[in-house]
């Protein structure tokens, strides 16, 4: 039998003669790296836990609804696509608040940004690629639950074909509305992350911003106020007391301040729904304003933070 022999040659350093694909490759690399960072791909096991939990949390409500429908065979209590976005919006905001800092803060903290900005890309390229990465993941989260819900409803309907014929308009609606929601939950947390140096603080800031705005507007428009009182043992407790809600013209404008509902006004408009006062007084009040107002208000919350972020990074020193 012939003896197998092998030899290893060290060719030394080889010059690169292959293609150089320019700025689109550069932008795509930053975008792809953003996706990998957020999903923990190429990182240790612990980096993957949180993204997986949050993705499951975003899909879980739809999965639960579908399972219930398939078991009891009644879909009357199942939320429509418009309502579903309201249900999962809390998870989306939470996801954004937790994951957005992961996208920008390590690059500044570890000064990897210095290495990016000496390569053939601009600050704008970097930011657009990073924001796009976050937007794509937010979009996937927004749509995934909705798709699970719709498929489940179609499959459990008595006549799937009739169900599709009756509800086909919901598809372009949830696509458009989902994109607006995803963009909203992208831009604000990413902007906050652009100004913070610690991830926990950035997350707390975003959650705080949403909570304070929601509680503040909720208290003003619902007529529920919180009062602190002292118990007999000297402890302090919070009590919900009735107070005079803001009414009329002022209520409509104050309701705009509920940050979490900024994209939901557009969601209601896209699905052509009339908000119910008892379900969501904020949406109900804003619906009384001319349609252009919530649209401009949404645009302001996109353009404003995006501009702040851009100016912030223009000032980054290497």
């Amino acid at each position: 039998m012939a003896e197998l022999r092998g030899e290893v040659f060290d060719l030394g350093y080889q010059r690169y003669e292959g293609p150089r694909e320019g700025r689109w490759r550069t932008r795509y690399a930053i975008f792809e790296n953003g996706l990998r960072s957020m999903l923990g791909i190429g990182r240790g096991g612990r980096s993957k836990v949180l993204p997986i939990l949050l993705v499951l949390a975003a899909i879980a409500p739809a999965a639960v609804f579908v399972i219930i429908v398939s078991v009891i065979g009644d879909d009357d209590f199942i939320p429509g696509p418009s309502d579903y976005y309201q249900i999962v919006s809390l998870v989306l905001f939470l996801f954004s608040a937790i994951m957005a800092p992961e996208l920008l803060i390590p690059d500044r903290r570890d000064r990897v940004l210095d290495l990016y900005l000496v390569r053939p890309l601009t600050v704008t390229d970097y930011l657009v690629a990073r924001v796009a990465a976050f937007f794509v993941i937010a979009l996937a989260l927004v749509y995934s639950g909705q798709i699970v819900l719709q498929i489940g409803l179609i499959l459990t309907a008595a006549s799937p074909v009739d169900f599709i014929q009756e509800n086909w308009l919901d598809i372009p609606r949830f696509i458009l509305s989902g994109a607006l929601i995803a963009f909203f939950v992208t831009i604000i947390p990413v902007t906050v992350a652009g100004f913070m140096s610690r991830r926990a603080i950035a997350t707390a800031f975003v959650i705080g911003l949403w909570l304070i705005a929601t509680l503040f507007v909720g208290a003003l428009t619902s007529g529920e106020c919180y009062e602190e009182s002292t118990t007999a043992s000297g402890g302090r407790i919070q009590e919900t007391t009735a107070c005079e809600p803001i009414k009329g013209e002022a209520a409509k404008w104050v309701a705009l301040l509920d940050l979490g509902n900024v994209p939901m006004h557009l969601n209601e408009m896209i699905f052509g729904e009339e908000p119910d006062q008892s379900d969501n007084p904020t949406l109900y009040e804003v619906a009384k304003l001319p349609a252009i107002v919530p649209i401009l208000w949404y645009a302001l919350w996109i353009v404003g933070p995006a501009s702040l972020l851009w100016f912030r990074y223009r000032k980054v020193k290497i």
Binding site: E21, T26, I30, E32, P106, R111, L115
Partner: peptide, 29 residues
């Protein structure tokens, strides 16, 4: 650069592959 500029949670292989792509090289190369 003179100062520290490296990510801590990725491998050198992953980081260099990424930086090569940021410089315009296709993923395989």
């Amino acid at each position: 650069p003179e100062h520290e500029t490296l990510p801590t949670n990725v491998s050198a292989s992953e980081f260099l592959m990424h930086m090569a792509q940021v410089s315009g090289l296709p993923p395989g190369q």
